[in-house]
Simulated scan of single mutants.
Amino acid sequence: MRKLIVPMVALAATLLVAPSASAATKVCAGGPLMGGATKVVEVGAGQKIDITVHNHDYRGLLVQIVEDVFDKGLWSGAIAPGKEHTVSHGVLGDPPVHHKIRFDVTSNLSDNYTYAIKSDRCY
């Protein structure tokens, strides 16, 4: 009997500690970013979004991420080769929230960059 109780307690503890399915994020928008160009992405999502930019090139990437509706800079900097950077942004309002994000890519040596906008809800 004791051999059966220990695995059941371990399973119950794992289920309690595991993240719930409702907390999972989904990719609402994503795609390539062109070097030396500006890209504006509009997406309907939840109140909080995570914006990830990935540098697939062997050279550094200079990028500025801007919330375009209020022209608010969210992040500006360099991303090392093969790395990514994630920025979180949240606004008040009832979902779906209209997010408009602008990517200003300064690096013009490559087009080997991508972005993904994730949220708990996509519309």
Rank of each mutant, 00 (worst) to 15 (best):
V105A: 02
L16G: 13
N55Q: 07
S76P: 02
D57R: 04
K72H: 13
H56D: 12
K39P: 02
Y115Q: 04
Y58C: 07
T86S: 13
L33S: 04
I101H: 03
V105Y: 00
A80G: 05
I79S: 08
R121P: 00
T14P: 00
V53P: 03
C28L: 06
I79Y: 06
T25C: 00
D71C: 08
L33F: 06
D111P: 03
H98T: 12
V69K: 13
A45W: 04
Y58M: 12
A18P: 00
V17T: 08
G44S: 09
K39E: 12
I65F: 06
E84F: 13
S22F: 12
I5H: 08
Q64P: 00
L15P: 01
K26R: 11
D50I: 04
R59T: 14
N55M: 05
D50W: 06
R2A: 15
R102A: 11
K100D: 06
A18M: 12
V9E: 06
V53N: 05
I51H: 05
A13S: 14
E84W: 06
V27C: 05
Q64E: 15
A13Y: 00
F70Q: 15
W75P: 03
K26H: 14
H54G: 06
H54D: 10
G30R: 02
D68I: 06
K83R: 13
L11T: 10
Q47T: 15
V87N: 01
V27H: 00
D104G: 01
K100M: 12
G82C: 09
A18Q: 10
A45I: 02
D57C: 08
V63R: 05
